[in-house]
Structures are given as structure tokens and as C-alpha cells.
Design a protein around this nucleic acid. Structure first.
Length: 498
RNA sequence: GUGGCUAUAGUUUAAUGGUAGAACAGCGGAUUGUGGUUCCGCUAGUCUGGGUUCAAUUCCCAGUAGCCACCCCA
């Protein structure tokens, strides 16, 4: 009823542009009154009658929900889970750009890709990252599966890689083993910009070398990847020494802090009771000013650690990398020892999500997970954060300058021909694109233009009869008729020139 | 997990205690076979649930989500 009214008013207003005033109101009221079946429904109905008749046998008649006016409003749509987002088509060029650059550089340094499962035994992370860390205590997705096994979604990449190293006896491979991993990580945190519950990291790890060169190499790789993407970073380095040195420093720091009897200190001591070192990273200005006078962890390093650290720095100097000694870099995961570093966007305060990546040495981890004593180091980059900066700085991925050819078709017959031709050209390596769903030539050329095609191949009724096609130069608009058999040759000739 | 700010078409955004308007994008047309310009038309929206009110998209509360700070981290 209202549908008819609506249609009537619409067609009439289309036929006669006179009815201006009426036009404005009629459809609106009609729309308001009831969610009328949409025009698209009509169209579908018409089409399916016309087209499905001859082929009725083979055709599964579409189920009918289309005839119900869709009432999307009342149903709660299912949305993505909090903190987890889609990576849409338009995002892909950034992702691919990043991955190409990151993988390319890393592979040049002799690393190979590894993939480990997203789900692991929860124990793996508790043992490696540390049972008392925030990451494990409150941020890990952890649950029983149907068989009652306690499993977890990986919150970081290193543990899984080390597990794989031990499990597959990689100590029998030439050492060090150098790998990289790109993939999703999961942490149950409160989302914020640059912080998601599912996010992606690019991990680079070296297992089986104690050499400070490897520390420097990984830092260099991290820095180079970002530089190659046009992101200026500052490298913040520190050494957290050996567990023994840290324990001793812990005591010293505690006694020092206790001489300051302010409320802030008391609160901070409470807050960081589990891992006092993290207090160094506190953002409280009062705490920070107190810490200025505090003893430094570096002064408590044993000789080996100190020598190692100095050597790392010498390498960085040699490479002319812009690093800053930052005693506040204390990584949140228990397994780090000696070198710890982060990469910041800009060299200012760490405020906001400016850390684009971080890493360091974890010499004890392999052993902790049941392997032999194996020194190792590595880092991870936060892909979302890096891409966010690329976006914000309006850096766009390099455009592929591959010339494209758009295949346009007019009429049903030429559509059939076009599909075949499309496959033929594609298999010959011609970079052909098209949109067979479109009918009008105008639209197709518009798309060709938007996609930046150099040439358009046009197949129409006339050409079908003559056994020819048109090749249109999209820049000049010059068209030539070409015999169908010669199409490949002609295109190749033109593409070479372009 | 704690505190604060925000929520309008696919996107960016306007307005209002009584009818929600634009731009971009999409689709179609002017040109039934010719794009990058123009003109015209169409599609599409007040996050969810309660409350106050004759009337709520607007005011209040809660939920949810996003953002910001803390926590923490990439």
C-alpha cells in the first residue's frame, strides 16, 4: 500500500520534474509511515522472474528473506569484540608496505620467518614472562579448553619462539638461530588509541649468541625498518644486568627510597612492591625528582655485564645510531637481562603510546623453558602504532607503477567474451583489471580512470561481430581497433612503451 | 582495574524539547557505446535500555563503545 504510493510518487516525479513541491513531501511521509519494501526488493523480484525461468531446473531459487522488509534497527547487530578491529581493504596497503619493508630488511640480515601458534599452554607464559607480572596476572586471555587444558592466547611472541627452539632441538642447527615472526598478540587491557586487545607485532629474535654484536644488530634492524618507512626514532638503551645485580640494586634502591618519607613514595613502594624496578618508569614528577639522586642500576652491574654493555654501546657508536642512555628503561617482562631498549617516536617524553617497539637480551629464558643454557636477544615492533604514525604523518606507501589495463564490456554477449578474454590475458601476465558487474561503458571507464589504468580494452557488440576490440589510451583518449587475435601482442607492445 | 570527556548516514560533520540538514563516498541519469569537469536525482543516520515529559535525537540514569589520563605496554 504505502509501497505503491511511494513508487507512484517516485515515478511520477521522475517523469515530470514539475512536481517539485509534491515530490519533496510524498516520499517522505510514505517512508515515515511504514518500513516499506524497498525498491531493491522489487528489482530482485523482477529480475529473478525474467532470468530464472529458462534455467529453473539448475537454479536454487533464492530463499525468500529478501521479501521481508529488513528491519535492521531493532535487532542488535553483532559488532567486533572490544579492542579488536578489522583490518580493512584500505588498510592493507599500509600493512603490506610495513611487512614488505620489515621482512625485506630482516631477511637481508639472514633471518628466516617462523610462525608459532596463537594458542599456547598458559604455563609457557607464566614461566617465561613471570608469574607476578601484570601482563600475566591481569592481561592474559587464559581459559580452559573443552578437555580442561589451561591455555592462553599469546600476549607476546618471544615465549612461543623459545618454546619452538627447545621443542625442535634447534640447538643442533648452526648457531645463532635467527628468526622473525609477524602476527597477532592478545592482551586484556583497556583499549586506547594505539592500544588494542588484539594487536600485531613484528618480532625478531637471535638465539644462541652472547655476542654484543647481536644486540647491536637487532637494534640496528629495528631502527632501520622504521627509518626505511620514514619514521624518525630515538633509541633508548639501558642495561638491567644480571638477576643477581638487580636483586642487590633492588635492596639499595629500597633503602634509598625509604629515606624519603613522602606519601607519594609510600604509595609508589606499595604499588611497585612486586617489581620495584618498575618504579624507575614512574610518571610521578615527585618520584622522578627523588630518583634523580638515587643510585643507578648501572653502577651495580658486574664486570661481565658492564663490559657487555659497553661493547654494545661501542657498536652503536660505530653505526652512528642516535641512542640515548636511559636508566629508566626497565622492561616489564621478567626474562630480560643485560641490554634493554625501546624505540620512541621522537626523542621526547615517553608519554602516550610513543614506544614503537622494544626488546633486549634474555639469556636465561631458553634454560628456564627446559633447553640448554642459551643466550638470546631480540625485539618486537608494534605494527598498529607504526601504521598510525604513517597515517598521521601522511606518508603513503609507494605506489606500484605497474601499468594496468582495464577490460570494459558492453552487452551480455560481450560479457561472456570478456570473461574469457580476461582469463586469457591474465594467464599471459598482462596486468588486467575489470568489473564485469558494471553495464554502462561510462561507469567502466570511470572506474578505469580511478584505478589509474593506462589502457582500456573495450569489447562491444560491434566488435563482437567484427572479431575485434578497441584499445583506448586513457591518457590521450586515442582509440585503435585491433583484431582480437592480436590483442596480446598489441597490449604487450604498448605496455613496454609505457 | 580507577578517574574524566564523547557518541547523529559508510566517512567528516550541522541543528533542535515537537519535521534531523550538508559535504564526501556509493548508486543512477543528463550522454540508451566513451572517464578525469559539470548538472540533476536516489540510497542512507540520532549507539542500547530505562526515566522525566502531552512530546526526548536533545534533559536525567544505566549499559555499551571510542577517546584522554593512570596502571601497564607494542
Amino acid at each position: 500500500m504505502s509501497a505503491q504510493k511511494k513508487r507512484a510518487s517516485r515515478t511520477s516525479s521522475r517523469a515530470k520534474p514539475k512536481a517539485r513541491v509534491k515530490k519533496k513531501q510524498a516520499p517522505k511521509t510514505a517512508r515515515k509511515k511504514k518500513a516499506a519494501p524497498k525498491r531493491s526488493v522489487k528489482k530482485v523480484a523482477k529480475k529473478s522472474v525474467k532470468k530464472s525461468l529458462p534455467l529453473a531446473k539448475n537454479r536454487v531459487t533464492p530463499k525468500e528473506p529478501e521479501f521481508e522488509p529488513r528491519k535492521k534497527s531493532k535487532k542488535k547487530n553483532i559488532a567486533s569484540v572490544r579492542g579488536m578491529r578489522d583490518i580493512l581493504m584500505r588498510d592493507q596497503r599500509y600493512w603490506q608496505w610495513f611487512l614488505n619493508v620489515a621482512k625485506g630488511i630482516t631477511e637481508q640480515y639472514g633471518y628466516s620467518e617462523i610462525e608459532t601458534p596463537i594458542v599456547e599452554d598458559a604455563q609457557l607464559f607464566k614461566r617465561s614472562i613471570g608469574d607476578t607480572t601484570d601482563l600475566v596476572q591481569k592481561e592474559m586471555y587464559e581459559f580452559d579448553d573443552q578437555s580442561g587444558d589451561r591455555i592462553a592466547l599469546r600476549p607476546e611472541g618471544t615465549a612461543g619462539i623459545v618454546r619452538a627452539y627447545v621443542e625442535h632441538g634447534m640447538l643442533n642447527m648452526p648457531q645463532p638461530v635467527k628468526v622473525y615472526l609477524a602476527g597477532p598478540m592478545f592482551r586484556y587491557e583497556r583499549p586506547q588509541s594505539g592500544r588494542f586487545r588484539q594487536f600485531h607485532q613484528f618480532n625478531v629474535e637471535v638465539l644462541g649468541s652472547e655476542s654484543p654484536v647481536m644486540d647491536a644488530e637487532t637494534i640496528l634492524i629495528a631502527h632501520t625498518i622504521l627509518k626505511e618507512l620514514g619514521i624518525e626514532t630515538s633509541i633508548q638503551v639501558n642495561s638491567v644486568g644480571s638477576p643477581e645485580a638487580r636483586a642487590e640494586y633492588n635492596k639499595v634502591l629500597k633503602t634509598y627510597l625509604k629515606t624519603h618519607k613522602s606519601a607519594a613514595v609510600k604509595e609508589a613502594l606499595e604499588r611497585y612492591s612486586k617489581n620495584l624496578l618498575r618504579i624507575l618508569d614512574s610518571k610521578d614528577p615527585e618520584i622522578q625528582s627523588i630518583l634523580e639522586e638515587a643510585p643507578q642500576l648501572i653502577d651495580y652491574l658486574d664486570d661481565d655485564c658492564r663490559a657487555h654493555f659497553v661493547s654494545v654501546l661501542e657498536h652503536l657508536d660505530e653505526l652512528d645510531l642516535p641512542y640515548t642512555l636511559n636508566p629508566r628503561i626497565v622492561r616489564g617482562l621478567d626474562y630480560y637481562n643485560r641490554t634493554a631498549f625501546e624505540l620512541w617516536h621522537g626523542d621526547t617524553e615517553e608519554t602516550r603510546q610513543s614506544a614503537l617497539g622494544g626488546g633486549g637480551r634474555y639469556d636465561g629464558l631458553v634454560e628456564k623453558l627446559g633447553g640448554r643454557e642459551t643466550p638470546a636477544c631480540g625485539f618486537a615492533l608494534g605494527i598498529e602504532r607504526i601504521i598510525a604514525i604513517l597515517r598521521q604523518e601522511k606518508t603513503s606507501p609507494p605506489k606500484s607503477d605497474e601499468p594496468l589495463v582495464y577490460l570494459a564490456q558492453i552487452g551480455d554477449n560481450s560479457k561472456k567474451r570478456a570473461l574469457k578474454l580476461f582469463e586469457q590475458l591474465r594467464s599471459q601476465g598482462i596486468p588486467i583489471i575489470g568489473n564485469l558487474a558494471k553495464d554502462g561503458l561510462r561507469q567502466q571507464l570511470e572506474i578505469a580512470n580511478k584505478k589509474g589504468a593506462k589502457f582500456a580494452v573495450i569489447v562491444g557488440q560491434k566488435e563482437m561481430i567484427d572479431g575485434t576490440v578497441l584499445i583506448r589510451d586513457m591518457e590521450s583518449g586515442i582509440q585503435e581497433t585491433v583484431v582480437l587475435e592480436n590483442i596480446e601482442k598489441e597490449l604487450e607492445k604498448r605496455l613496454k612503451k609505457a
